[in-house]
């Protein structure tokens, strides 16, 4: 009940932020010097064509009306149609979001596990060899361009060692399975096709590894820092001085207290992951949201850009909320 009330309160506080986000997404397109309608009509269009397009897109309405109908549409899941493909944007989103989510979720999971194990180990061996090795690894992960790392992994594991599949598609060509959820690992399980499941894992390997490596770096550093703080805290030192068994100290004190700080860190890193997924989808020809948005950006398909920016920001904001709720549930000191 307490958690429910807290979530409700936070959701209400979200409303002004989302209004702001929608305003920015809406006016971003109007940053463009000149008339958006000129982007849409072909270069050979006559004055009459331009006027007709303006009316069709509602661009002849006052700006406030335009904004309200845009927000009204977005709230009911109607983002309009792409001006270059004429496809419904909502349908495109529904088809592509699962592909991207799949990449994001697995990468985040791998990164979290690596960062927690590595960060706590580094803190326990502070300034000794494991700590130094991990700091070096974090420096590498923070400095390496993720899209280049992806290409290098393709070069090494596909081109060189032939252990990875070619960088396109989600399963081997001959193993296509019917789509139920859009999540390939779940769809292959539903189809009961073990071979396709393994093939999907195989195809996920490199893109997930690339994304995970680049987000593990910042997480690792934060976990290490918060584990060091716990180790130096009065309550941990008191517990240690009382001679608790090392295993109890490690699991009940060090791990648990370090983990309560993790949700907030993960939410911040999730933003990097969202941006990075655009690049990684491009490298691996992964037909998710990023590839779709990128194509829209390259041809200045402005309803597509708008929808993508809005969806990305809303997701990011909701992830922050989720992180806060998890944190509040984990940590009794947080006031709800």
């Amino acid at each position: 009940m307490r958690v429910a009330a807290y979530v409700l309160k936070r959701l209400l506080l979200l409303i002004p932020v989302l209004i702001g986000v929608s305003l920015i997404a809406f006016f971003l397109i109007r940053l463009l010097p000149g008339d958006p309608v000129l982007l849409i009509v072909p270069e050979t269009a006559t004055e009459a064509d331009i006027a007709a397009a303006r009316e069709r897109l509602g661009l002849d309405q006052p700006i406030l009306t335009q904004y309200l109908s845009y927000v009204g549409g977005a709230l009911t899941g109607d983002f309009g149609t792409s001006i270059t493909t004429n496809r419904s944007i909502s349908a495109d989103l529904a088809q592509r979001i699962p592909l991207t989510l799949e990449l994001l979720i697995y990468s985040m999971a791998v990164a979290l596990v690596l960062a927690v194990i590595g960060g706590v180990a580094a803190a326990r061996h502070w300034h000794k060899l494991p700590d130094k090795v991990l700091r070096f690894a974090a420096l590498f992960g923070n400095s390496v361009p993720e899209f280049w790392l992806g290409l290098m992994l393709i070069l090494l594991f596909y081109q060189g060692l032939h252990v990875a599949p070619p960088p396109s598609g989600r399963v081997d060509m001959d193993l296509a399975v019917p789509t139920h959820t859009g999540f390939i690992l779940i769809d292959t399980l539903i189809a009961g096709n073990g071979k396709a499941f393994l093939s999907a894992l195989h195809h996920l390997m490199l893109p997930v590894a690339t994304l995970a490596i680049t987000v593990t770096a910042p997480l690792l550093r934060s976990v290490r820092a918060s584990a060091l703080e716990v180790l130096a805290s009065d309550n941990y030192r008191c517990a240690a001085a009382h001679g608790l068994a090392p295993r109890v100290l490690r699991q009940r004190y060090l791990m648990r207290q370090t983990l309560t700080r993790l949700p907030a860190l993960s939410a911040i890193v999730f933003g990097n992951l969202l941006g990075g997924s655009v690049l990684i989808e491009y490298v691996f020809s992964w037909q998710g949201l990023g590839q779709w948005a990128l194509r829209g950006m390259q041809v200045r398909d402005y309803p597509v850009i708008q929808a993508f920016v809005l969806v990305a920001a809303t997701t990011y904001v909701l992830i922050f909320l989720l992180a806060d709720v998890i944190q509040a549930a984990l940590d009794p000191r947080v006031k709800m």
Binding site: L28, N272, G275, V278, A313, V317
Partner: peptide, 20 residues
């Protein structure tokens, strides 16, 4: 400022670069 920081940085960069 809060509102601008609700956007993942690179995605905002992509959109602005695409539009400008």
């Amino acid at each position: 400022l809060d509102m601008f920081q609700a956007f993942p940085v690179f995605i905002l960069a992509l959109a602005v670069a695409a539009i400008l």
